[in-house]
Structures are given as C-alpha cells and as structure tokens.
Computed example of a mutant assay.
Amino acid sequence: MEFLNDDLDILDIIENGIPRRINNSVSPLNQLLTTLRFYATDGHLSSVADFMGIHTSSASRIIKKTSQVLASLRLRYIRMPQNEEIVQVQNHFFQIASFPRVIGCIDGTHIRIQSPGNF
C-alpha cells in the first residue's frame, strides 16, 4: 500500500473551489483551518467560530463549502484495492497489527452501536 505522493498541499488543491474571501475577511487558509478545527472538535460550531474569531453563521457557510470541495476529491484519493492488490494490502495490514483479511479502513468518529439482540 503506497501513500499518494502527488498533491500533498491540500490548500493548493482546494483553493480554486472555495471563495477567495468571505465578507472580505476570511482567507482561504483560514477557511480550511476553520473546517479542520470543526472536524477535530466533534462538530461544535460555536466553539470553532469563537476560536477563529468569526460569527457562527460565517463558520457554518465556510465549513459547508470547504467540506463540499474536500468531498469532491474523494474519487481522486479514496479507492479500494482491486484484484491481486487485495492480497498485498491484506498482508500489509496483518504485518502492522496482526489483523487478518483487512483490505481498507476509514478513520472517523466512533459511535456506540446498540446491539440488535441479547448478546
């Protein structure tokens, strides 16, 4: 499993998709940082807005637009292994953590899943 080495500067990649300035005050870099802060703080919009020194409604618009631009890149960076690559990826995951038959993983918020039965 190889890391994609091209296009590592995410701001350069998404800068054309996000507005240059919102109300002539929030730069593309701060829009990206606002969105990343939102992701990192369990989605507390008012906390992120206060931290960034912007109004909550502005933070909401920024996060929505930046998230849409980031999501539009999914086909470029997210893919599942195909054919013979599956075995290589499974072996790599097993070497890392002794976790058998894994071909991919997603990092995200962990939520409690209620058991459907009496287990």
Rank of each mutant, 00 (worst) to 15 (best):
L45M: 15
L45F: 13
L45H: 10
L45G: 11
L45R: 09
S46T: 15
S46A: 13
S46G: 07
S46R: 14
S47N: 05
S47C: 05
S47T: 11
V48M: 03
V48P: 00
V48W: 01
A49M: 07
A49V: 06
D50L: 06
D50G: 03
D50T: 07
D50P: 00
D50M: 08
F51W: 03
F51C: 06
F51P: 00
F51K: 04
G53R: 12
G53Q: 06
I54D: 02
H55S: 07
T56Y: 09
T56Q: 08
T56R: 15
S57A: 15
A59T: 01
A59W: 00
A59V: 04
A59M: 03
A59F: 04
A59Y: 00
S60V: 02
S60E: 04
R61M: 11
R61C: 09
R61D: 14
I62V: 10
I62E: 07
I63F: 01
I63V: 11
I63E: 00
I63G: 00
K64H: 14
K65D: 05
K65P: 01
T66W: 00
T66V: 12
S67P: 01
Q68A: 10
Q68G: 13
Q68Y: 06
V69I: 14
V69E: 12
L70E: 07
L70S: 03
L70W: 02
L70I: 13
A71R: 14
A71L: 13
A71H: 14
S72T: 08
S72Y: 03
S72M: 05
L73S: 04
L73G: 06
L73W: 02
L73V: 07
L73A: 09
R74D: 12
L75Y: 12
L75S: 13
R76I: 09
R76L: 10
R76P: 07
Y77F: 15
Y77C: 11
Y77V: 15
Y77A: 11
I78V: 15
I78L: 14
I78T: 06
I78S: 05
R79A: 10
R79G: 08
M80E: 03
M80P: 00
M80W: 08
P81T: 10
P81A: 03
Q82M: 03
Q82I: 04
Q82H: 04
E84M: 09
E84V: 12
E84S: 15
E85K: 13
E85C: 10
E85Y: 09
E85S: 12
E85A: 11
I86R: 14
I86F: 09
I86L: 06
I86V: 15
V87W: 02
V87P: 02
Q88H: 08
Q88L: 09
V89E: 05
V89Y: 00
Q90T: 04
Q90V: 03
Q90F: 08
H92R: 04
H92W: 06
H92A: 13
H92L: 07
F93E: 04
F93M: 06
F94Q: 12
F94I: 02
F94R: 09
F94W: 08
Q95A: 07
I96M: 08
A97F: 06
S98W: 02
S98L: 08
F99G: 09
F99I: 13
P100D: 09
P100E: 11
P100N: 13
